[in-house]
Amino acid sequence: APSAPPSLSSTVAPPSLPPYFIKGSIIQLADGELKRVEDLKTEDFIQSAEISTELKIDSSTVERIEGSHTSPNFAVVQFSVGEHRAQVSVEVLVEYPFFVFGQGWSSCCPDRTTQLLELPCTKLSVGDVCISLTLKNLR
């Protein structure tokens, strides 16, 4: 059975997310175009990766989301990365936004993301396919 999220502490920790996730932040694409973070589309990442000489985009499917053992403010997200479906787990703040293909920004706690960053955000769910990066040539 799905477990209910733990109740959050009444004290709100200061946000420690990178500043570029705040609504209105200016992002430069690989071709030099400037866009606000909330206006980014899937194609922006795909086209930027195509231009990049070092980076390529991988599809990372969310396999599992669970609370962190270390803090209720964190979640552990397990991804299946790339064509080889390598298993990679990351521990992130619950409000940390991932970009879901064809959908946009999503986080484990979208209400908190919107509250802290004003970034429009949907709920990250198992099965979502997120954009991640890897190196074009590892050899």
């Binding site: 400037l34 922006d44 990365v81 990351v90 997120c130 991640s132």
Partner: peptide, 25 residues
């Protein structure tokens, strides 16, 4: 006097995670 501040510009690749499978063979 308030001097105009330049707006920070962030590269696109900062926004998506670098998920690298651990090298296991």
């Amino acid at each position: 006097n308030v001097e105009p501040r330049s707006v920070p510009v962030f590269p696109w690749h900062s926004l998506v995670p670098f998920l690298e499978p651990s090298q296991s063979g």
